[in-house]
Nucleic acid binder design. Structure first.
Lengths: 336, 336
DNA sequence: ATGAAAGCGCTAACAG
DNA sequence: CTGTTAGCGCTTTCAT
């Protein structure tokens, strides 16, 4: 159709509507600041020409661009991937595009990405977690836009935070196992550097068990967060000093799944001999044998709430910072 | 540090280097077009001021922005998520940011997203698959930039394509099953609308079996691509007219995993009674019981090759279109 | 409420 | 090879 792609510009709309450039700009971005007549004529003209303002030109003169920067560790984690999509779709409805960057838990990369993004004058920045390097904090402070930290609320946000408490997740895992009578517990995580939030869950787990009479807990570090590492973990645990534990919590469902498979191979019955709790409630969790008991943070809500709060904040910059806890559920199935 | 965030502008560099604006611009973007002396002074001045050009201002005057639009169906698929990250990281090294959009297999949304992105004057566009609506094709044609189609090479690319042959994947699945003696086969996919590429694999699978003597194949549509749907599929297959098949191929590993679990629950031995082939080689595939035999397209390479070819093309716009087949491996484990 | 005009920071002819 | 001069398309004072 009308795809000559010498797209209509504001001047075309102005001419067709018989008003000045300024009026078009106003009629489109602050309809209440022009007379109803002008507004109508401009909107008609714009519609007729299929006019869409150039985000680039707008960004050059305006204080910020219709863009939200999103800094994440990685896309390997299905939750990050999904919540990013949800966020992205939510913002799109408000005409905001999203600009992602990945740092793989490397502070230097995180800072570099952030710096590059700020040159685009984003309307808002979303970063992952509450712990950031000094450099990142400085950049965030200098950034002239609202900052949203996601996936964690245990700590002091720079501005707003949308996530859940990883400490609570650790506590819930411990309670789930303790409640069914387990007394010799292990929490399995990838190395701290690979996932700081998993480390927070481990800390709370160990702490919770430590204040329980006649129960003890150990921390085992898997090589990474894969099913393979989970299988290794089980092998390693069965010949631990003092015998195998009677309850294991994993910092991720993939790890837990690997453990379940390996337990089956070793004919270690779950949950009778060892109870297993996962984390994440990945799609397959309900279908393993035995079905995996796991924790489910409301990850879907992270993207949704973020989008909603970002949009609200941009509409009213005076709005105060928020701290949204999307919560965590314990999904009890068969493994614990 | 120097984070007053009234960032240095080109004029500052020009003054410090004692040259004109234009020379700074040239020295920075085409160092060979200025004298060594100028180049040096400019680069020194730029470094000293920590100058980074404003991508927004640059984009307004230049023909395109340092941005690559990437249109994907979704992030639910771990492959899309990963290859997007790899692509994104690869482009970042060349100073290109990535701008994603998701359409969930909806043509209208795809067109809308594409249109919105084109307003940003991307240096290149990446879209998923080779089949697009007329509207999308028109937009792509009008877009004044190279177009890369990813994840599929069976068909006629608008410009360049980086992916693999889904038909080959279907064929390989069939051959794997036929070769081990299976003769009554089923291919399980989600509904076509959910994944056109899965439909292509199914087609090739059925075709391959149909030209084999004494073998037959049927097509079963699962409700979606989850493990749950895979479990349902197995239940449905065991009381199919003419008895259960002796070989099943799934269009995704999650489906296959669900099937494996359900088979175990039903005490249907795999691969003795039914051989199972997956698709994707998701991380867990090596750890299921029995370990899943599956197909592995070189998805990692898609992002890498894309980034490399996009960068090369932008460096030399005269470069011709490419068609890169990253290939598929059959990963034989225990289930078939 | 509206218009005129001055940029936003850079690129791209065009002269020299 | 370098500098000058126009814009790129929009937002935003500042008058009116």
């Amino acid at each position: 159709m009308s795809d000559t792609f010498a797209a209509a510009r504001m001047a075309d709309v102005a001419k067709l509507a018989g008003v000045s450039l300024a009026s078009v700009s106003r009629a489109l971005r602050a309809p209440d600041s022009v007379s109803p007549g002008t507004r109508d004529r401009v909107q008609r003209a714009a519609a007729r020409l299929g006019y869409t303002p150039s985000p680039i030109a707008g960004s050059l003169s305006a204080t910020c661009a219709p863009l939200v920067g999103v800094v994440m560790p990685s896309m390997a984690n299905a939750f990050f991937a999904r919540s990013f999509q949800v966020l992205s779709e939510g913002l799109e409805r408000a005409g905001l595009r999203t600009m992602p960057g990945f740092h793989e838990y490397d502070d230097t990369r995180e800072a570099r990405i952030l710096e590059a993004m700020l040159h685009w004058k984003p309307a808002a920045m979303v970063v992952t977690g509450l712990n950031h390097s000094r450099r990142v904090l400085a950049l965030l402070a200098g950034a002239n836009c609202p900052v949203f930290e996601m996936w964690d609320i245990d700590g002091h946000p720079v501005d707003s935070a949308v996530g859940f408490s990883n400490a609570e997740a650790g506590r819930l895992a411990a309670q789930t196992l303790l409640r069914r009578g387990c007394r010799d517990l292990v929490y399995v995580t990838p190395p701290n550097a690979v996932d700081p939030r998993a480390a927070a869950r481990a800390g709370a787990f160990l702490q919770t068990v430590s204040v329980t009479d006649d129960a003890r807990a150990r921390h085992l570090r898997a090589v990474d967060r894969t099913a393979g590492a989970g299988a290794d973990a089980i092998r390693c645990l069965i010949d631990l000093d003092g015998g195998p534990p009677d309850g294991i919590a994993f910092s991720g469902d993939a790890l837990a799944m690997g453990a379940l498979f390996e337990a089956q191979r070793l004919e270690l019955s779950v949950p009778e001999r060892i109870a297993v709790v996962g984390y994440g409630d990945l799609e397959f969790a309900g279908y393993t044998v035995p079905a995996l008991t796991t924790l489910r943070p409301a990850h879907d809500r992270i993207g949704q709430e973020l989008a909603a709060h970002i949009i609200a904040r941009l509409a009213d910059p005076g709005r105060s910072a928020v701290r949204v806890d999307v919560g965590i559920d314990v999904v009890v199935r068969e493994s614990a």
